[in-house]
Structure formats: C-alpha cells, structure tokens
C-alpha cells in the first residue's frame, strides 16, 4: 500500500488508496505550516516556570513537553498566531516580526 509521504500531484490515480483512505495516523505531521508565519514566537527558557498554561492553548500542537518540562517550539507547524505569548504569565514567550526568529 502506498504511504502518505509518497503521494503527490504526480501520483497516478491507480496508485492511490481505494476510497481515499489513509492507513497511517498523524500524517499531517509531515506537512510544513511553519511557512505561514509572519510573526515568530521566541522561547526564553530562563524565564519559564513550566506552568504548562501555553500548551493547551496552542492550536497547532507546536509546544513539545517532556519529563514535566516544555521544550522549544516546533517551528515546522507553528503558524505564529501569538496566543501563547498572551497566556504566558511569566513573559517567557515573546513574538518577533517575521517568519524566522533571528
């Protein structure tokens, strides 16, 4: 069965999955929505208290968590909406202009 990552606009219809079904979970992960950003969040680790309030507010599941700590942003999916900056009580996130944090 053809894998999602191998399907593109050049794939002949005979090779597509029957009924347009997808047999793997979470294939959207391979898709880059980071190019949408016009503003970019920057994570200041030293200010973060790992209260986790930003995590459920991220519409793009772009803040990874490991062992009770939030990690730096996943810029492959972050669309730069800025919700996280506003919900952070400790100013550990600031938005900068442009699609890339320099």
């Amino acid at each position: 069965m053809i894998k999602a990552k191998d399907i593109n606009e050049h794939t002949p219809w005979q090779d597509l999955t029957p009924g347009g079904e997808i047999y793997e979970p979470g294939t959207a992960r391979a898709f880059n929505t980071g190019t949408w950003r016009t503003n970019t969040p920057v994570f200041h680790e030293e200010a973060c208290k790992h209260c986790m309030l930003c995590i459920p507010f991220c519409p793009d599941s772009s803040i990874p968590v490991k062992d009770g700590k939030r990690l730096d942003f996943n810029y492959l999916h972050c669309k730069g909406c800025g919700i996280c900056e506003n919900v952070c009580p400790f100013k550990a996130i600031t938005m900068v202009s442009g699609g890339v944090a320099l």
Partner: peptide
C-alpha cells in the same frame, strides 16, 4: 492535573491547515 495531561501524546497533530489562532484546533486537542 494540567502537567500530567499535557504530558500525554497529542491526539491532534500539528500540520493541519486551520487558520492561525483558530479556536477549533485548541478545542479538538482539548
């Protein structure tokens, strides 16, 4: 316990095409 809940693997992944800042993604993941 928010800390315990966010440690679970996300069941709605990134890479979807909802508008930036859309409430729906937040709700479905929640």
């Amino acid at each position: 316990d928010l800390k315990r809940e966010v440690e679970k693997p996300e069941r709605l992944t990134g890479g979807h095409r909802l508008c930036a800042g859309c409430g729906a993604g937040v709700i479905v993941a929640g």
